[in-house]
């Protein structure tokens, strides 16, 4: 019973606090979380396709670089990578700015927190996307590549007409998983001070002393984001594979 009355109090204060401005703040937080996730996914897509190409290369050196990239960035704690880019970026920027004399010898030039966070999460996302792209490439029927070669297609034409359309189609389910991972990783860049959902919930919890409420709301909002993306990716999968569906 004590539990129930507690819960009732929480619910009634919840409405007041959310209406008093924290609700709008949290919505902005969602906006930033989505911005971080989308930009990270794009960075990851560029890096991921390059790394996948390196891993599939016949040159040993390139394969080694690709392997090391995916091993390191999937094997390190996300938090460490984020700190490395944020604080490490600050270290580098400060060093450069001090030596060129654009800031005083005791001043510090901070890494922009959005840039640092997005780079870190994007690079992690790239490691997972590389594996997705590599898997999709390997799933392309060998005969199609041989046929394209037999037609005398150049490497670029083969890539554009045979490889890319199929990799994109086969990669959709895997990319859906990486998208979910990236949403969850984006919560970690709250440690660098990007005002995304996690940091907003943190601020609200600290200043109102209603941590249960705000972390629960944040948790629910993350659940909404991850569960909304599932049907979207399913739709994308149906769209990209529409010519492969069996006739009813």
């Amino acid at each position: 019973m004590e539990f129930l009355s507690d819960l009732k109090d929480q619910v009634s204060t919840a409405y007041e606090l959310l209406a008093a401005g924290w609700g709008v703040q949290l919505l902005w937080g969602i906006g930033w979380t989505l911005a971080v996730t989308v930009v990270s996914m794009l960075i990851g897509a560029v890096l991921g396709s390059l790394v996948a190409a390196a891993k599939l290369s016949y040159r040993g050196g390139l394969r080694f670089i690709g392997e090391s990239y995916t091993t390191v960035f999937r094997g390190e704690p996300e938090l460490l990578i984020i700190y490395l880019f944020y604080y490490g970026g600050t270290q580098v920027l400060t060093g450069v700015a001090r030596s060129t004399g654009s800031i005083g010898s005791t001043d510090i030039l901070n890494m922009p927190s959005f840039l640092g966070g997005v780079l870190a999460v994007g690079i992690i996302s790239g490691a997972y996307q590389a594996e997705v792209f590599r898997g999709s490439f390997l799933a392309i029927h060998r005969g199609e590549l041989e046929a394209a070669r037999a037609y005398g297609m150049s490497a670029w034409l083969r890539f554009r007409l045979v490889i890319m359309p199929q990799v994109l189609r086969l990669a959709v389910p895997g990319l859906g998983n990486v998208w979910q991972l990236t949403i969850k990783d984006s919560a970690l860049i709250s440690v660098t001070g990007v005002a995304e959902l996690m940091l907003t919930a943190n601020k609200a919890a600290r200043s109102t002393h209603h941590s249960l409420l705000f972390y629960t709301v944040a948790g629910i909002l993350y659940l909404v984001m991850t569960s909304i993306s599932t049907p979207i990716f399913e739709k994308a999968e149906r769209y990209t594979s529409r010519s492969f569906t069996r006739p009813k």
């Binding site: 949403i183 249960l212 659940l223």
Partner: peptide, 25 residues
């Protein structure tokens, strides 16, 4: 599974560490 896979571990950690102490019981 839906709840624990769909939200970041950090939120779950904060909810358990800071959030649950809100309850008197």
């Amino acid at each position: 599974v839906f709840v624990f896979r769909g939200s970041p571990l950090l939120v779950q950690l904060y909810l358990i560490y800071f959030g649950l102490s809100q309850f008197d019981f």
